[in-house]
Design a protein around this nucleic acid. Sequence first.
DNA 1: TTGTAAGCGTTATCAT
DNA 2: ATGATAACGCTTACAA
Lengths: 332, 332
Amino acid sequence: MLASLGLSKSTVSRALNGYADVNEETRKKVINGAQEMGYKPNATAKRLASGKSRNIGIILPSSNQLFVSSAFSKVLAGVSNMLAKFDYQLIVTTVSALQDEQQVYFDFITSGLVDGLFIVRTRINDERICLLKKHHFPYVCYGFEQGYEADSFVDVDNEQAFYLLTKRQIEQGHVRIAFLDAPSNLTLSQARQQGYLKAMKEADLEIDAHWLLNAELNESGAMKMTKSLMALAHRPTSILCADDNMALGTISACEELGYAPGVDVAIAGYGDYEHSIYSKPSITTIKYDTLAVGEEMAKLMLNKLENKQFKIHNWYSTEIIVRQSDANVAVR
Amino acid sequence: MLASLGLSKSTVSRALNGYADVNEETRKKVINGAQEMGYKPNATAKRLASGKSRNIGIILPSSNQLFVSSAFSKVLAGVSNMLAKFDYQLIVTTVSALQDEQQVYFDFITSGLVDGLFIVRTRINDERICLLKKHHFPYVCYGFEQGYEADSFVDVDNEQAFYLLTKRQIEQGHVRIAFLDAPSNLTLSQARQQGYLKAMKEADLEIDAHWLLNAELNESGAMKMTKSLMALAHRPTSILCADDNMALGTISACEELGYAPGVDVAIAGYGDYEHSIYSKPSITTIKYDTLAVGEEMAKLMLNKLENKQFKIHNWYSTEIIVRQSDANVAVR
DNA sequence: TTGTAAGCGTTATCAT
DNA sequence: ATGATAACGCTTACAA
């Protein structure tokens, strides 16, 4: 400790933590002293005394794609960046398929290890949110469903994004438009589906139930679905995908079947992953500000935990990036 | 607390932590009691009392690709998985280009926030390692350079991998083989370069200095380099890349220049990223067990921190996955 | 403005 | 085998 300065530890504590009731002379002395002797307050002790861990947790499924999507990595980077600015740390844990997810969340809540939790890949009627609400535990979601409170979520406007993407297909003359959505238990899948349906209905187009499928957000799932799609008598001329990885799989499947993607079939994705521009054909996709989404998640958390007054920005806009995969399809 | 059982907290502590000097009857009573009343020891208090944080940190550059490479995400997942099994948490922080990296590391070391640090993307003469060594702070590296101790690193055999990859090109008849290496300050770049040079020398092939370039591990860097490469009078017939993203950029650049990748020019990458199989041409690449590397990093850390006796497995093997990008090039 | 002292919820060292 | 009691290194009333 800084006893060498002849000051009590309370004064030191107050000086270092920017309390007002400290003589500025004293404060300088303390700060300089700390500097010189390389004094660093012990993080754990601070946490115990203050009752706050200054850790925020995020629990990721160790198996699936989410951890791997390049877009999501950037979201994480945004979160971590912003938290670090306010001396908070991000704790990343994975939960495997073998573990009881609710239990993992419960353990986090009750251990005092984290002050708040991020929830990603929100699900319809998400049990994780129920749990956190029940325990009055601070959380921020990446994802939205009716009933989420404005201080607790960030999302892109999935419905609008896929409404516009579908509309674009319609404007290009497509009539038979399929949508390979993400797993149906996700809130984003529901929203995107609504956007798709809205555009189709507005244009008074038939919606064949076979054209609306769900699969994991990866290449192989999309390949399988595409094959069933293209085997239909009434096969689609345009296939919308829930992300760029799926679009990649769809492109691949079409080729295997002898259809030229981007020529015989229009394809579009979501996320603007790094590789999408290098795909052949390059992938028409939906772009959004991944880093900003992450930062916003952190801000909302800080609003809750530190009574910060960051302006709430729930919804992030998207933009269609037109590339080859859906640009040159002559619709018969 | 469990006072309701009429036991002192020391007894409760001992019972819960599996100490030998506790009556088994008592232990059962305590464990059941804890179960029933949902008692959870406070993580922060444990940490303060024991002097250990049970957190391991990893500091990632917020800007570059590393955070984004799909391979690396899996490494992270492996780390987190294994740590969680032993009740350790992974703390992920990012350091932006604006911040003083050494300072960020120093703060971590001295704050008591983490008991150990992972170092990734090791650099030649890595200052981070110097710092940690100086402070006798536990660390484990992903990467290797002469002098690293066996208990402190995990790596794939980069030299061998690129030796074999280069050799493969030679066996296919290539004589002018270029190598787009990663930034030259990384240990992996040095090792890979050595592998490349070894194979070239063994085959007594000319090594044009123009054929050996460095760039960031992304598409655009590789594109630029490829263009300079293909403008050479003595242009290469085979281009090896330090990862699959670079290979993607190289493919794209070749096409732009009117060379058919996989036909006019052989191209290969490293990492077996998800998209590589869907590229056109699909990318010949080097695969390794990403999850296992992550788990091994965690094990080495646990060896240091908990005196675990996990068998040390420093080197991870690689395997060439042959695909189209380097398989059908007729060498003149 | 500064100091004193109690407490945060554990672990660890003694006795008993 | 169990219980007091003192740390652990801070924060935070409350006193001075």
